[in-house]
């Protein structure tokens, strides 16, 4: 038993390391001075660092750790343009998060606990839209944005994403597992419908809300499709797009830039870890 456990642990650790390797690589490289990074990753194939050759393919040695620790790239990476792109990302992400977190609970409560005609039909449409790939929705969004004269602004990205049906779906599934008698209890105790929602249903949805927060944040922080389509002004791009631009232009700074970009995502994941698992469990009905 113990031996098996040990083997499992080793295998999983190795897999985890392999998965994390690009990220660790990036972090360690971010501490190199810019020149070193450039030197290493451009075509400097000399007899000294070639490890093996097969015809035209050369394998050469790459050190994971920097030979000299420096924060130079971090300082260089924080130029005004990068910082502007960072805040662009924030300014796109925050309204979308707010929108989702306000609209989804209300919609989920409405779908689950209030009976009205065509409710299930509308929910069915929601599911269909949710399942459509984003690329399919880009054309109608673009046309709509044009008609509303929103084409070069962030609103063209924010509005469709804030109303995304995914949040409603996730929360409604969570609500299905809820004991509805507590809502009745609240009603009998004297609360009007809005307070029943606010004081009882909303706290009950909390794990799923946090899961929604985390998932939406990651989705928005990494948004690329919509920003490429809708935003034309270079200075309005979010960081996710700018990072790609940076790779070709300034190879020395890219590691530090990417590491800084990664930090909010990691922090938010650490915050919402348990709730993510709980929320998805409740939504799919699988107990852990």
């Amino acid at each position: 038993m113990k031996k098996k456990h040990l083997i499992h642990t080793i295998i999983l650790t190795l897999l985890a390391l392999i998965t994390l390797l690009p990220m660790l690589f990036m972090i360690s490289n971010s501490f190199m001075s810019a020149k070193e990074a450039v030197n290493r990753y451009t075509d400097l194939v000399t007899p000294y660092n070639v490890w093996a050759s097969e015809g035209n393919i050369h394998y050469y040695e790459v050190d994971v750790l920097p030979s000299y620790l420096s924060f130079e790239t971090y300082v260089k990476a924080m130029n005004p343009t990068y910082l502007r792109m960072f805040w662009n990302s924030v300014l796109i992400t925050v309204p979308i998060l707010l929108g989702q977190l306000i609209i989804s609970p209300l919609a989920a409560y409405g779908f689950e606990f209030i009976t009205w005609k065509y409710k299930e039909l509308l929910f069915f449409l929601y599911i269909i839209v949710m399942l459509l790939p984003i690329q399919l929705l880009l054309v109608p969004h673009y046309i709509a944005a044009n008609l509303l004269h929103l084409n070069d602004t962030w609103w063209a990205i924010i509005i469709p994403a804030a109303f995304s049906p995914f949040g409603t779906f996730l929360l409604r599934q969570h609500l299905k597992g809820l004991d509805t008698t507590i809502l009745d209890a609240a009603r009998v105790e004297g609360e009007n419908e809005w307070n029943v929602f606010r004081k009882v249903a909303l706290p009950a949805m909390y794990p799923s809300l946090v899961a929604l927060f985390a998932l939406t944040f990651v989705e928005c922080w990494n948004i690329v499709d919509q920003s490429i389509v809708f935003i034309k002004d270079v200075f309005n791009e979010p960081l996710s797009v700018y990072l790609a631009r940076m790779v070709t232009a300034e190879p020395g700074k890219i590691f530090a830039a990417a590491t800084i970009y990664m930090i909010p995502a990691i922090l938010i994941f650490m915050l919402t870890n348990e709730y993510l698992i709980k929320g998805i469990n409740l939504a799919t009905g699988v107990q852990s």
Partner: peptide
């Protein structure tokens, strides 16, 4: 509506609010 009928109800499943402690549960009404 219920809230104006001045009735009190005890449910089979107790229907206690899970996110509140006992004091707040009782004090809810």
């Amino acid at each position: 509506p219920s809230r104006q009928r001045n009735v009190s109800m005890v449910f089979q499943s107790y229907a206690l609010f899970p996110h509140l402690n006992v004091f707040e549960n009782i004090a809810f009404g």
